[in-house]
Nucleic acid binder design. Structure first.
Lengths: 212, 212
DNA sequence: CCTGTAGTAGACCAGTCTGTATATTAAGAT
DNA sequence: ATCTTAATATACAGACTGGTCTACTACAGG
């Protein structure tokens, strides 16, 4: 093989970075090419699907990276609230380090490209699912032995097979993910980390702790 | 004044709609013009600041509209959880009615334009602030008499002046807003309302209810 | 040595982008 | 009736878009 073999990966990484900070439509291929140091021909050789394919792969890559980091942080502690707080701290560091340009690597693309491209939308949804799964597992590991509330325990016929509160944990993981995503969105827009701290401070109540 | 006098407002409304569904960079001025039935000259007459000014005004308008709707819904009930659930229902209807194109009218622009334009970013931040204020007032009206937790009551010197739980209510409103924003983001990306329902179901726990 | 091919390099295309400049029209004032 | 101004209507400019095309380079196998 001629010259370099890492061109493809470099392009995806560059694209992921730019999409992360600017979104899909605000990022031109020329910018990706310039920043990645590759000519146009190479792009369409490696990505015959063009910008759309590049975005799908970039989203998947960024999602994997953050999922890995999330797993590492969450598995490092026994306290579910503590684990999630460390995840929030990680996101806060990313925000600060990038002058509030790097929030959620998926959200921008999800919002500004899913109207255009169904494949991109699906890729983003898949990433969110994977994150939610990690969070749910984390919660299951530590708080599944609780009665898991019961405010809506009427309309569940016999859905939960194995664990008793599995459906409830999924719901809880959805809420946790939503709160985190919203906090990152607010923090990025306000250029201020306090939304992350607020969510962190209220995680205890959200997870059903007596009062923190 | 010649011809029409509503051209300006029509343009802002059209722009707000398109920015809402597609974001800032994905929406071309030609599309705004075509959909609003106005020529280019009129746009730069009414908005000498060009696309940026149009976006700032569109964001403010959309933010005002939703703030009004939010106020109406929240003032209609005495139960804070019930009120927020109705707000979630409203957002869910908007999503469904628009085939999941209309989520938060601010988020898309906030994410894909605040890297480019400081004025747009500020406009978005202002809208979020206004929404948060509405939520905080709503919470203050109904739950301010609670002890307002205290899991992190160590590093607060003497911030809260007037009401005892005011700072705590602000924090809580931030978390509520974040959770709602995140839920809308997830719902739009997944094309599925369940994140909204999940947040609704957990609002009680989040607001400090015993386990309701 | 020669050829096939993976990959690179960049010119090029048609279309679109935001923004500007120049008419043209309609109303209000004098 | 005329002059001014608010507003509309287009034509146009220059830059940039994503995408295609062809030429070229470097390596591998025969």
């Amino acid at each position: 093989m001629p010259r370099r073999t890492d061109t493809r990966e470099r392009m995806v990484r560059t694209a992921a970075d730019l999409f992360h900070a600017q979104g899909y439509h605000a990022t031109g291929l020329n910018q990706v090419l310039a920043e990645g140091g590759a000519p146009k021909g190479s792009l369409y050789f490696h990505f015959p699907g063009g910008k759309e394919q590049l975005a799908v792969e970039a989203v998947a890559l960024a999602g994997d990276d953050l999922r890995t980091a999330l797993e590492a942080v969450l598995s490092g502690t026994d306290d579910p609230v503590e684990g999630l707080n460390q995840a929030l701290a990680l996101l806060g560091e990313n925000l600060e380090r990038s002058d509030f340009k790097h929030g959620c690597p998926i959200a921008t693309v999800a919002l500004d490209a899913s109207a255009d491209s169904e494949p991109i939308r699906e890729a983003c949804a898949d990433v969110y699912d994977s994150w939610q799964r990690i969070i749910a597992e984390h919660l299951n590991r530590h708080v599944a032995d609780e009665p898991a509330a019961g405010e809506a325990g009427t309309d569940e016929p016999a859905a939960h097979q194995s664990a008793p509160g599995e459906a409830a944990t999924d719901e809880l993981a959805t809420v946790v993910l939503a709160a985190i995503e919203g906090a990152v969105l607010l923090a990025r827009t306000r250029r201020d980390l306090s939304p992350l701290h607020a969510v962190g401070a209220r995680l205890g109540a959200l997870l059903g702790r007596p009062t923190g």
